[in-house]
Design a protein around this nucleic acid. Structure first.
Ligand SMILES: [Mn+2]
Ligand SMILES: [Mn+2]
Ligand SMILES: [Zn+2]
Ligand SMILES: [Zn+2]
Lengths: 143, 143
DNA sequence: GTTTAATTGCAACTTTGTTGCATTATTTGT
DNA sequence: ACAAATAATGCAACAAAGTTGCAATTAAAC
């Protein structure tokens, strides 16, 4: 329910053309509190019809410019979520994911500096550059 | 290069029949220090030929009895590794994974009790039951 | 408004993994 | 060592997710 003008502006800020396909998809992603699959997004589009390939390419474009990121679910399908959380860009390495083992929803968890993760003791020769942290359990919707 | 008798004994310990396919696959997994894909395993088998479906089912049987576990790589293909580390069974929840971003190898990292991971601050309503930790960087082979 | 380059839709394709079923091999009991 | 029972195997067909090539369309810039 964000205005097309606002959505178009966001697309332009990220160097993308403000096409109707992108506006539709961005609107769906802005609405969602959880990461969405290709199928999830299609099912959230009513009258408008959008080719499946166009949707794949739209999502790829969002990821490549840093507007969105993708995370694999337990079935190893890609889910997509914006890196914008109420107009602030969240760093991709600065957040973890919560996977609800019941409803399979995936929530992005921005982490503060205090939320440090202590790494396991590594054999010599391994150089750690980043890390990926996935929490499993049940979400508020399932409790 | 483990004797067939020894491999067969391991299979029996886990309640599996000691078939030739399983002996071949288990031998490959015992040898490897990293997790292996379906394709990796096929490429490590010389004279013996093994149907692709049989290999998939062999790996599933190893996982379902707790002899092996599987972990998805960056391409979202399954990699398999034993839960036996020199005759001791490693808990599946008690270890992390190191992904080499250069050679794509995945190493299992058994974690001691000291190697605690501090969790990010969660909104109320989330119940955490387990976690999954993936470290990225470059491995000893690539340094 | 025209031009130009990017985006879209369609069809065909790829890759990884799964399912059904008839054949074969491993156990178990004699 | 042999036979019966049961589980594993091989083959072909299938499924799901995602990709590629290309001609037609559209957004942006002039
Ligand atoms: Mn996220
Ligand atoms: Mn592992
Ligand atoms: Zn849930
Ligand atoms: Zn490496």
């Amino acid at each position: 329910m964000t205005s097309d003008k606002k959505l178009k502006d966001i697309l332009h800020q990220y160097g993308l053309k403000g096409t109707t396909a992108r506006i539709i998809v961005l609107d769906v992603l802005v609405q969602s509190q959880v990461a969405l699959s290709h199928a999830d997004i299609l099912s959230r589009i009513h009258g408008e019809d959008l080719d499946k390939v166009t949707l794949y390419r739209t999502l790829s474009s969002f990821v490549s410019v840093g507007l969105a990121h993708k995370v694999a679910n337990e079935d190893r399908n890609w889910l997509y979520a914006l890196l914008l959380q109420n107009n602030r860009r969240v760093g991709i390495d600065d957040h973890a994911h919560f996977i609800c083992d019941q409803c399979e929803r995936i929530y992005c968890l921005p982490m503060d500096a205090e939320d440090t993760i202590s790494v396991p003791v590594m054999d010599n020769g391994f150089v750690i550059r980043s890390h990926e942290y996935r929490l499993h359990g049940t979400c508020p919707e399932c409790n």
